[in-house]
Simulated scan of single mutants.
Amino acid sequence: MDKWIRIFFYTFMVLLFMNGCNSTKGTEDIFQYKGSFVGDNSAIANIVHQLPGGEHIEEIELNTSVEPFGIVLTYDWMESEKRYIETAINNATFIFTLVQNAGWITFHFNDYEYKLGKVELQKWYGDELREYSSEDELKKQIETFLEDESKVKLLIGA
């Protein structure tokens, strides 16, 4: 019996140790960056890397010399044009929700470029983006609007 208790104990300790080594990446709440500014390099990088395609970011350029302030994101990523458009809309929505003074974002995906403005995106949604307070709530809004291809084409200009 003593042998079985020791085996159980060591097994339990190994499992506990392995659980403690699990990465917590991806569990970080992106809304902790709400209220950030374009000039905050660290916050912008953390936001962008948590969004779809974040692992494919090649360059982040912050334009803070003239208002409205902007961000240029360059991706090294081979995907379909539809996926690029969805990513641009999704990521712009999150960035405009979280970053107070972002006025525009340009997305470079290989041969495709999309520029989205905060004012235009808010008109498209019919909502003030700063009013969102949770990732789930914002994701639902984005998914609803991405379902309507004619609305997407109107926004992107395709």
Results as ranks from 00 to 15, higher is better:
residue 51 L to N: 01
residue 97 T to P: 05
residue 66 V to K: 07
residue 6 R to Y: 06
residue 71 I to A: 03
residue 122 Q to Y: 03
residue 94 F to W: 00
residue 68 P to W: 02
residue 44 I to K: 05
residue 41 N to H: 12
residue 115 K to R: 15
residue 120 E to H: 00
residue 38 V to D: 00
residue 40 D to A: 12
residue 21 C to M: 13
residue 72 V to F: 00
residue 29 D to G: 03
residue 152 V to S: 11
residue 70 G to A: 10
residue 53 G to N: 03
residue 108 H to L: 02
residue 15 L to G: 14
residue 153 K to M: 09
residue 91 N to R: 03
residue 4 W to C: 07
residue 87 T to L: 08
residue 19 N to V: 10
residue 127 D to Q: 10
residue 65 S to C: 05
residue 99 V to I: 11
residue 60 I to E: 02
residue 140 K to R: 11
residue 52 P to F: 04
residue 90 N to Q: 10
residue 75 Y to C: 02
residue 22 N to W: 09
residue 89 I to V: 11
residue 100 Q to N: 11
residue 95 I to C: 11
residue 110 N to V: 00
residue 34 K to W: 01
residue 131 E to Q: 12
residue 112 Y to T: 09
residue 119 V to N: 15
residue 140 K to P: 03
residue 58 E to P: 02
residue 13 M to W: 05
residue 100 Q to I: 09
residue 56 H to E: 11
residue 25 K to Q: 12
residue 10 Y to F: 15
residue 139 K to P: 06
residue 136 D to E: 14
residue 22 N to K: 14
residue 42 S to G: 05
residue 86 E to M: 00
residue 2 D to S: 08
residue 24 T to K: 15
residue 56 H to A: 12
residue 76 D to H: 10
residue 31 F to L: 09
residue 35 G to T: 06
residue 151 K to P: 04
residue 119 V to Y: 15
residue 25 K to L: 13
residue 110 N to K: 12
residue 57 I to S: 09
residue 119 V to K: 13
residue 128 E to V: 14
residue 17 F to W: 09
residue 20 G to Y: 00
residue 49 H to P: 02
residue 2 D to Q: 12
residue 100 Q to A: 13
residue 127 D to W: 07
